[in-house]
């Protein structure tokens, strides 16, 4: 099974990150990759090259906030968490996604 490059799809990556942050709460960039990989049953593999720019953009938009912390392994890591504004964004994007998939599914089913 080929690795799905679906983080190329506009907006999906944001939704994935927001959603992951909501359940996994302050977490560093590598942890996010791992989490998305595991949670999707290894179907999704977010590319490192897209993850960090996305995180920084979202931080600037005020959807997520970051804090430097020392991890259990004793390493300095930037931990991201969801802000109130991010919660709202997540809700909106989630709804968009639902609508999109429903629509796409219907079109595909249509014969």
């Amino acid at each position: 099974m080929p690795k799905s490059p679906n983080d190329k799809l506009q907006g999906t990556l944001t939704l994935l990150i927001l959603r992951a942050l909501r359940t996994r709460g302050p977490i560093h960039g590598y942890g996010l990759l791992e989490h998305i990989h595991a949670a999707s049953n290894e179907l999704l593999q977010v590319e490192e090259g897209s993850l960090y720019p996305a995180l920084h953009r979202m931080e600037q938009d005020g959807w997520i906030s970051a804090k430097w912390e020392i991890t259990e392994k004793g390493r300095k890591a930037k931990m991201y968490s969801l802000t109130a504004r991010g919660e709202k964004q997540l809700a909106a994007e989630h709804e968009n996604w639902e609508r999109l998939t429903r629509g796409v599914a219907r079109v595909l089913r249509y014969s």
Binding site: H28, G29, Y30, G31, E34, E48, Y52, W68, K73, R75, K76, A77, K78
Partner: peptide, 17 residues
């Protein structure tokens, strides 16, 4: 500096794995 630190952390974690 912040970016470098963050990438360094990422590398370390990935290598551990």
């Amino acid at each position: 500096h912040e970016l470098e630190d963050e990438f360094a952390h990422h590398l370390a974690e990935a290598a551990d794995r």
